[in-house]
Structures are given as C-alpha cells and as structure tokens.
C-alpha cells in the first residue's frame, strides 16, 4: 500500500526522518518542484514530504479518476491517503493556492492528524458573488480554459522531456531534463474548473486546526481582501502580509515566505 502510494503521488521524503512532518501540497498549474527553494531550509529539523497530484509532475496518470477529482474533496482524500499510508502524525500542512482549501478540507475531516495549516495565497471563492469580492467573473474563468486549450500545442512539448540545447547555459541542462511543471491538459483543465468554480466559504468556520494565511502584497489571483476574509472567517487563524508580490511567493521570495512560516510556528509552539 505504502509503495503503491509513493509511486502514485511521486512522494519524496527528505530531511530529518525523526523531525516533525511538514507536508507540502502544490497548487494549480505546477508540481512539487514549486517547493524546491523552500524545502531545504526545513530539512535540517523537519521531515519534509512533497508529492504531485495525479496528472501533475511525475504522479501516475493512470490513477486519474474523473469522478474522484470532480470535487476538491477528492484532492483532500489524496492528502489524507498519503498521511495514512506514511503514518504521518502531528503534521504541519503547507498548501499553496487551491491546496490551501484542499488542506482545510483535509484538516476538517481528520482534525487530530494536523497541528497547523499554512495557507499560501488562499481563496475560498474566486468568483465575485453579491457583496463578496473574489476578484473574478465567470467569463474570466471560461477565458482561462480557452487559453489552456490554446496552449495545447506547446503543452504537448512541455509534457515531453525537454530536448532543446542550451549550449550557452550548460548549468541548466540537468534541470531542463527534469522538465518542471508537467501537467496533463485534461487534468489541468478539470482542476482549473474545480478550483475556480468551488465555493468553500462555508467550510472556513469549521476549520479547528490553527492556521496561518500568507498573503502577498500584490496577488491578482488571491487579492489582499480575500486573504483578510479567510483569516477573519476561520477560527484561530492569523494573517501575515509579506512584501513579496505575485501569486507564488514561495518561488519569488522563498526566504521571506519561510521566515513567515517559521515565526508563526515559533510563536504558537
């Protein structure tokens, strides 16, 4: 069972095997490669677990099940299945983007398994709804799906191992062969639909696990108003606004993002 899951989700375990577990869950659009700048600083004193959702990175695409992944609950089940197979206890769960809500659902399902939830750029609902500001309209999301379609031709090449030469920058050769951010188009589009059409506002008050919202200063996907909303609606949640910009502070400002997490963990332990 354990080996089967390690293969299915391409699970990598690094760091101090006896340390407290930090489980990193990537967001929509990429894979566990997103955590490569942050993971090393946790490896000294934590057991660091990373994985790819089905259809992303090197997870086993054959394990994709349309019915299961028609709901964020199916993705939350992935997180819980991984925790169960690896017998992870007292987990610090770090989720980026949609994985913040996936993480929240997992924590609500099994509150005893998780001690902290770190949400990087969360949004419980992307589409505006009455007084609620999510930042997007339905047609924006439809536009995104069309755009993903439009990238089908380049998608085909990004899924294949990168073969182009980089004579001028040989240091990149190795990394290129690892081919980051591979996603299956069908899976990615389905994930986009589930992500951007979900409404998890009603789940926030149910979250008992203490949580931290890490909010970038200028994130068009999850604006500050949304981060504030999440922190307000979630019991025992703290908001940390960092100076980093964009939706991927773990890529653009890994040190600042890591510090925010570490300070939070130190202050509540």
């Amino acid at each position: 069972m354990k080996e089967c899951l390690i293969d299915r989700y391409n699970i990598t375990i690094t760091g101090n095997q006896d340390g407290q577990v930090v489980l990193f869950a990537h967001g929509f659009g990429c894979d566990q490669g997103m955590w490569r700048y942050m993971a090393p600083s946790f490896e000294a004193d934590h057991k660091v677990v990373r994985f790819d959702y089905i259809g992303h990175g090197h997870a086993n695409l054959n394990a994709y099940n349309r019915e299961r992944y028609a709901s964020l609950h199916g993705y939350a089940q992935d997180v819980l299945d991984i925790c169960q197979a690896l017998d992870l206890q007292d987990v610090i769960l770090v989720g980026h983007s949609v994985s913040s809500m996936i993480g929240a659902l997992a924590c609500i399902r099994e509150p005893d398994r998780f001690v902290r939830l770190i949400m990087v750029g969360p949004s419980p609902r992307y589409i505006n709804d009455g007084d609620y500001y999510g930042g997007f309209e339905q047609e924006d999301i439809e536009g995104l799906l069309t755009m993903m379609d439009g990238n089908f031709f380049s998608w085909a090449t990004s899924m294949a191992p990168a073969i182009m030469g980089n004579a001028d920058r040989p240091q990149l050769g190795l990394e290129l062969r690892e081919s980051f951010c591979r996603t299956d188009l069908d899976v990615a589009q389905q994930f986009a639909r589930v992500t951007f059409y979900s409404d998890n506002r009603a789940d926030l008050p149910k979250l008992k696990t203490p949580s931290l919202v890490i909010q970038s200063t200028d994130d068009i996907i999850a604006p500050i108003a949304v981060g504030e909303y999440v922190a307000q609606q979630t019991p025992n949640s703290r908001l940390c606004i960092i100076t980093a910009t964009g939706h991927c502070p773990h890529l653009s400002a890994p040190v600042e993002t890591t510090d925010a997490i570490r300070q939070y963990l130190a202050s509540v332990n």
Binding site: F28, C30, S158, E175, F180, C181, G246, S252
Partner: peptide, 13 residues
C-alpha cells in the same frame, strides 16, 4: 501567474 511565471522561474525558459 499559475503557469508561465513558475515555468520561467524553474525552467528559465
């Protein structure tokens, strides 16, 4: 934000 920026940052191309 979700695809191109991570791709450029991680892959450089």
């Amino acid at each position: 934000q979700t695809h191109i920026y991570p791709l450029i940052t991680l892959r450089k191309v």
